[in-house]
Design a protein around this nucleic acid. Structure first.
Length: 107
DNA sequence: AAGGTGACTAACA
DNA sequence: ATGTTAGCCACCT
């Protein structure tokens, strides 16, 4: 199973109402340095994927997506729909990590 | 088939 | 404190 597959598997474990960061996922698979690759993997997902990619944000708690198919505003809406509060200021969407960050259980 | 191209992040200057 | 850089992987020419 390659890196991308691992990413999808882990992202799928993030429960509704919680979020995870790219670095967090990367650290679980290999090294924390692969954070960017996590983003690459999500970018490669088909539009109709079942993977809850919207629950993955950057270490600042900000929506970091760069994909014309899914504008940031759309990701923000998806998260709000799941009960997550998304603040919008300075033209940036942000989530309170202290509140919503998901902690993966060991193993 | 080799190389460019991305949803990041922590470490440095 | 703000800007730059290295490390990382699969997919598409």
């Amino acid at each position: 199973m390659n890196f991308y597959q691992e990413v999808y598997k882990l992202v799928a474990k993030v429960p509704k109402g919680k979020v995870a960061t790219y670095g967090q996922i990367a650290a679980l698979i290999s090294t924390p340095r692969a954070a960017q690759v996590v983003g690459f993997a999500l970018r490669a997902l088909p539009q109709n994927s079942e993977v809850p990619w919207q629950r993955v944000i950057n270490s600042q708690g900000c929506i970091s997506i760069q994909n014309p198919r899914w504008p940031q505003s759309e990701q923000a809406r998806l998260l709000k729909r799941e009960g997550i509060k998304v603040a919008f200021s300075h033209n940036v969407y942000r989530v309170d990590l202290d509140k919503y960050l998901y902690s993966f259980r060991a193993r």
